[in-house]
Design a protein around this nucleic acid. Structure first.
Lengths: 132, 132
DNA sequence: GTTGACCTTGGACCTTGGTCTAGGGTTATA
DNA sequence: TATAACCCTAGACCAAGGTCCAAGGTCAAC
């Protein structure tokens, strides 16, 4: 599909799509159409990538990190083992993120319980992970 | 404590602390010292706030969102019920974030399994949450 | 062959989240 | 009472992540 259709389906602007292409986050095919400035062709795979970019971004990864992470997509010539290694280390980063967020959630649940209980005793602090 | 000590303990620069104060994320007390430009006094509570700001930020919340979320800290005059309500809605936002990240983790684990299995069958897509 | 809807590049501009510098006041210690 | 080591404000500057034209090429349909 062409850029505007892709942008529509991905829920981002064509400007942003071009920005991502410049940054190496998306690597569209080149169409034979368009003469000296060939049109860019996007696929379902690219839509998948766009979804992950949006999510990773909303989780606080920078575009630079996402692009590095997206090496996966530039991995056509890599061995399966190498690609697996990359995927596993990416996975680790998301796991670390999950740990962070769960720490915050635990703290908040803990604080809510303290409030529900009439704010008796010391206010839970984020420092103490063990607040139950 | 004064700003430089606070900044040191919080692991951020004094410039950033002042920036956060301007943005309403931190609300230090005013010292009697300092004449026309009174010194700012920070407490353990503020350190706790700083820790949460850093974490929330690393999870992709904007400072604006964190400040709104931090209404809690400006809640001295609010009823317990109102504060509980705010805390619960904050908690919901973190829960939503946790769901997002778990979706990504599931996708990645799924993809790794597919690769470990020799990339047989269709490549898992992020769209399909059910990929086991 | 012209009209409208696309596409391209290039560069200016905006917001967010800081960082840095200048200029000046305050405090503690000697 | 002078000096170092703080504190304050105000404003310029920076990088990231976009956003918004302008100028021009292409395509499909009439």
């Amino acid at each position: 599909m062409l850029i505007s259709e892709f942008a529509r389906q991905a829920g981002i602007s064509t400007d942003t799509v071009r920005f991502y292409v410049r940054k190496g986050l998306l690597k569209p095919e080149q169409s034979v159409k368009g003469g000296a400035n060939p049109y860019q062709i996007f696929s379902e795979d690219h839509l998948d990538t766009a979804r992950i970019i949006k999510l990773a971004q909303s989780l606080g990864f920078t575009l630079r990190e996402i692009a590095d992470l997206g090496e996966e997509y530039a991995s056509a010539g890599m061995s399966l083992d190498r690609r697996l290694e990359i995927m596993r280390s990416q996975c680790d980063r998301f796991d670390a993120k999950a740990k962070q967020i769960n720490a915050v959630r635990q703290y908040m649940r803990c604080k809510i319980a303290w409030m529900e209980n009439g704010e008796k005793g010391p206010e839970p602090r984020f420092g103490n992970t063990a607040c139950g």
